[in-house]
Design a protein around this nucleic acid. Structure first.
Lengths: 149, 149
DNA sequence: GTGGCTGCAAAGCTTTTGCATGTTC
DNA sequence: GAACATGCAAAAGCTTTGCAGCCAC
């Protein structure tokens, strides 16, 4: 994402909080700012470590609470993974994910046309709210580092 | 899956173990038999509870070890979910999943034609080993029980 | 008989919860 | 000032680990 777009999102965030009935605190701003500025899909621990610099008093428990609230209000999404550690994504535009089985890195990917939003077979009794496509495999860096592994 | 196919899979399982260098134990047979006979994508706890009847001495730790080995040998797959509890699937045929946000139930779904195995945009530096499509939403039963919730 | 497997128990890690204190509005 | 949010610490939940004894081969 471009820097300008990130700045814009962060500038709009206080208004989003108020609409959702959430108070605008330093902690919430720091968590949102960190997530909006990255595309690495951080864990709660990652977020905590990153914002301890500017906000040394923040606690990991608060980070968990904030991430959970933000997800419930739709400010960010949790990425589905097989691992048992949560990973978050503040990019709400339509996209899917590449998950490297070697290094664990998660990258965004946009698919062309109709594949981006697949349809269920006609007659399936299920109302879809959202669809995730996960590509598991090896990223370019890992494939280059150990071609045959 | 038909009952005959399940029986067939279970009958072939000892041979699969031997090829993988794993000894054929009652515990492994019980875990595999339970998973092959269901399409509910059980958690380790589910597996443990289900096989305590026939095998009262089994421990939860052993179930975890066995599930991990089976996954590494490709006898079953772990389903990607946002939750932090592992769920397993012994159905290795090409299919994807419907995940109900209300009741947590996971159902199998087969998609028509090319959508079943989407391709990455040309030039993407990523070697795909496997692709998961997850449809999040509400299942038929939950939609019927509380239409507007 | 031997090597691998199981059962048990303890430990590890992530996440949730409760409550007194502090902050936003 | 009232309501909500934070920080701390304890607890809960899931999973892994270590090891002595047991079992498949």
């Amino acid at each position: 994402m471009e820097r300008e777009e990130i700045t814009h999102r962060i500038a709009r965030f206080p208004e989003q909080c108020r609409r959702a009935g959430l108070k605008v605190t330093h902690q919430r701003m720091a968590v949102y700012g960190m997530l909006a500025a990255t595309d690495t899909h951080p864990t709660p621990e990652d977020v905590y470590m990153a914002i301890r610099g500017p906000l040394p008093s923040i606690s990991l428990g608060t980070v968990y609470k904030i991430l959970d609230q933000f997800q419930q209000h739709g400010f960010l999404r949790r990425v589905s993974t097989e691992g048992h550690v949560a990973r978050y994504d503040a990019n709400l535009t339509a996209h899917h994910h590449l998950i490297c089985e070697d290094c664990g890195k998660i990258q965004d990917v946009e698919l062309p046309g109709p594949v981006q939003e697949p349809q269920l077979p006609a007659g399936t009794r299920f109302r879809v709210s959202h669809c995730d496509i996960l590509f598991h495999g090896r990223c370019g860096a890992c494939a280059a580092a150990r071609p045959t592994a």
